[in-house]
Design a protein around this nucleic acid. Structure first.
Lengths: 129, 129
DNA sequence: ACTTTAAACGATAATAGTTATTGTTATCGT
DNA sequence: ACGATAACAATAACTATTATCGTTTAAAGT
């Protein structure tokens, strides 16, 4: 599946993002890896996130409170974002929806890379204070 | 339709956003109003954008290249974002499908404020270099 | 009209997330 | 082993956004 050979730290950054469901920030990845790599630099995390984004290995989901949130799951799916606590969780997107949206634009000579569906609201936990 | 009475500059910021289709940044609004209000401060633009967002008078569409993009049209609709030039244009979203997305979450005791559908890709103009 | 009170603003400083730079270290191919 | 290249840490730089503060404007009440 993976075609390139990543360095240990690069690999760890990717694995960190893939192995959690929290759609983390750069800082979260950095702090989570400090134990395993005490000499890890925040710049390395950012550098690799940019790289992974360019490769299409990860996705940028949204930026919440000024912080970019990433997703290691690149298969088509949607997100629910709680505006109160900032939690992001995955959702199903009806295939008809993304098909319809993509078709709309393809008719207008655009190239479509991705259809992103996000529901904004308040999660159950935050609703009960 | 409008219930509050806005100051002249506040009104102008809102009108600027409503009267364009470009889903502008704060800086774009600021520069566009400098002719009419030579003493306008960038802080005022930001201050009012925050206010409008809180009121629900405008929406935050996305942040592209680190800059937040706004939309004066609050009726349900989707967006196409060209990753090359950053242009944002409006799209139709099948009502039944956004209802489906909302229902998915409401079943899980969440409050749903908004269903956002965005297509990422490359616009026709950018495709022909 | 005059005063009082609060809101809105301009100017500017501060914050914070992200990106760029630079010198060093590790990795890979030969 | 040696040279070339990629990856890194440390740190500085950048930039969008937010906060502060003193002043001005507008509104409300008398």
């Amino acid at each position: 599946m993976r075609t390139r050979n990543y360095s240990r730290k690069r690999e760890a950054v990717l694995e960190m993002i893939r192995s959690c469901k929290c759609h983390p920030t750069a800082a979260w990845v950095y702090h989570g890896l400090r134990e395993q790599f005490p000499d890890l630099s925040l710049g390395t995390v950012y550098r690799n996130l940019v790289l992974f984004k360019q490769e299409g290995t990860i996705l940028s989901v949204a930026t919440i409170d000024g912080q970019e949130r990433f997703d290691g799951l690149v298969d088509p799916h949607g997100h629910f974002i709680c505006r109160t606590c900032g939690a992001i969780s995955d959702m199903d997107v009806p295939a008809a929806l993304s098909r319809d949206m993509a078709a709309q634009r393809q008719l207008q000579q655009c190239r479509v890379d991705r259809v992103d569906c996000t529901v904004y609201g308040t999660c159950a936990a935050c609703l009960q204070h």
